[in-house]
């Protein structure tokens, strides 16, 4: 009996995953569509519904809630709206997962408001800081001779740093800290029975964040960074091949000729097939 209480079983984990995915996905879908408010130069981006997975991660199994939220964001707002950014989404996925997971692990007792508050703001800050670092790297890669363009490096550092502080102080407090502190104590003890679980107490929580967890989290962030860094290595690889293949032009011409042949052959085959089927 005790076993079933301390840890959520597989199907309960799936329930948490689905719950977090549906809610956070819905919320990010709205923020993707609604333009952000602008008050002077301060941009009040309402892009922050992070309180939903934060709340869920504090009440339920943090890993399922975190993964569900990250998947929800990718599936609902990126893939459904066709905003999928390829490799870049991996970074968003991992940073959201790490931020939410850490916040969820930090809370021993969801009734303790101080713990909830500290965890909520830490998780948000973590996610934003990782996003900022990766963003800066991304711009540095996309533009060749980044340093040579007048005023560009400073402006990137400035906008990114400003966005970080702005997001943390405005969206972070307004849309992450306050709603989480509002929702967690109200939902505590009410939402768990709906999934057939016991509320989290000091006894049933997963334990303090230990050394191993930190290592895994750092590896996760490194992976997020590497997914962006892949740019540079990919670039040198291509350049190296170009230098090696002196007859680049003839290769292109070869591909071109092959493509022409392929198009003609395919058109003929297609017509034949259509005739047969008629």
């Amino acid at each position: 009996m005790e076993n079933t209480q301390t840890q959520a079983n597989q199907s309960q984990k799936l329930m948490i995953f689905v719950l977090s995915m549906a809610l956070y996905g819905l919320a990010t879908l709205f923020t993707e569509l609604i333009p952000s408010f602008q008050v002077g130069i301060v941009e009040l981006s309402v892009e922050f519904f992070l309180f939903i997975p934060l709340t869920l991660a504090m009440l339920f199994d943090p890993l399922s809630a975190a993964l569900g939220a990250a998947t929800g964001e990718v599936v609902f707002s990126e893939i459904m709206l066709g905003q999928f950014g390829g490799l870049g989404e991996l970074e968003k996925f991992l940073t959201v997962t790490i931020g939410v997971y850490v916040a969820g692990r930090m809370v021993k007792d969801p009734r303790n408001m101080k713990q909830v508050a500290v965890a909520a703001i830490t998780g948000t800050a973590l996610q934003l800081a990782m996003g900022m670092i990766v963003d800066i790297c991304k711009v540095e890669f996309a533009i060749e001779e980044f340093e040579a363009v007048a005023g560009l490096p400073e402006s990137v550092y400035f906008t990114e740093g400003f966005a970080f502080l702005n997001d943390l102080l405005f969206s972070g407090i307004l849309f992450c800290l306050l709603p989480t502190m509002f929702l967690v104590p109200r939902l505590y003890g009410k939402i768990e029975p709906l999934l057939g679980m016991e509320p989290r107490t000091e006894k049933t929580y997963l334990g303090d964040i230990n050394f191993k967890t930190v290592i895994v989290l750092i590896v996760g962030f490194a992976l997020a960074l590497v997914s962006q860094m892949a740019a540079e290595s990919g670039m040198t690889l291509i350049e190296w091949e170009f230098a090696w293949a002196e007859s680049f032009e003839s290769i292109i011409f070869g591909i071109f000729a092959a493509a022409v042949l392929a198009v003609v052959a395919l058109l003929v085959l297609r017509r034949k097939q259509n005739k047969v089927s008629e």
Binding site: S11, M15, A22, A27, L174, L187, G196
Partner: peptide, 24 residues
């Protein structure tokens, strides 16, 4: 904004029920 935040309270409970049904 406050209304949107607050409406997530009933929504969370409803979706929790729904996701349990789905998974079952």
């Amino acid at each position: 904004v406050k209304m949107i935040m607050q409406s997530f309270y009933p929504l969370m409970l409803n979706v929790a029920k729904r996701s349990r049904t789905t998974v079952e």
